[in-house]
Amino acid sequence: MLLQQLSGNLTQGLILGAIYGMATMGLNLIFGVMKIVNVGHGAFIMLGTFVSFAIFTYLGLTPIVAIPLAFIVGFALGSLFFYFIIGKLTNAPELNSLLATFAIGMLIEEVTKFIFGSEWRGFTWDVGRVTLPFTVLPITKIYAFIISILVVIALYLWLRMTRSGTALRAVVEDKEGARVCGINVDRMYALSFSIGIGLTVMSGVILTFFISVGLNPYMGGAYTLRAFVIAVLGGLGSPLGAFFGGVIFGLVENGSYTLLSLIPGIEPFSLTRFVTFFILLIILLVRPTGLLGVK
């Protein structure tokens, strides 16, 4: 019984973790290249969920259509913010860009509220479910899992196989060196910021495949915190690390519930959060730059 529950929770956690990981890659890419912590990260995830919501509810299309659309929206927004704000702050103290991303996040939230109102939105996209011996999986969750993996592979291939991807990695490793080698660092900044935001907005769409309710202009905060922790778990600046960090996070968050529920007199669900953050601290103590982090 217990084992059955544990494996059920771990399966769900694996899927959720893959989505978390996917949702953190954008944050990590931006940090790796520009050393900017995007405090407005959650707002972009929220934007993605609303793209998915609008496509499904207003246009009546399958939310899969929303995936490329969200990437384009995010890419465009990313370029826009880069040229008007972030790009002007590359030489300013690090904290300034942090404040700028905070304000950008706020702007996105408020504009969304202005357009969609403060209503809790949601939709139900049902394409059937698969019953496993230990849990039930709606097919949309399986889609989410597969798409997340595909995105990770695509990003990996881009970073490894293409010219621009290699240039980007060079900037991550050594900015000055890359400049000497003739890489246009500023262009790489713009590219990474736009792609990072694009990936983040896209991940919002994929998130709705797992949880399609509770959409609200202010829903992003919880995801920002999670993304931060996941990014650090995997190692800042390493998009792949982010993915593994996400999987670990999802497994721990869901898996520890079953074990904690054996302890009487406590609230296991709240304590799962404690456990995840505790593990984060332990990992940081052992490896101060995360699991796959480079110094």
Partner: peptide
């Protein structure tokens, strides 16, 4: 008789526990 934390975005663990 269990509670889930405020702001939880996935209730699967507590619900599988409940359904058992």
């Amino acid at each position: 008789d269990r509670f889930y934390p405020k702001g939880a975005t996935d209730l699967t663990p507590i619900l599988s526990d409940l359904s058992a």
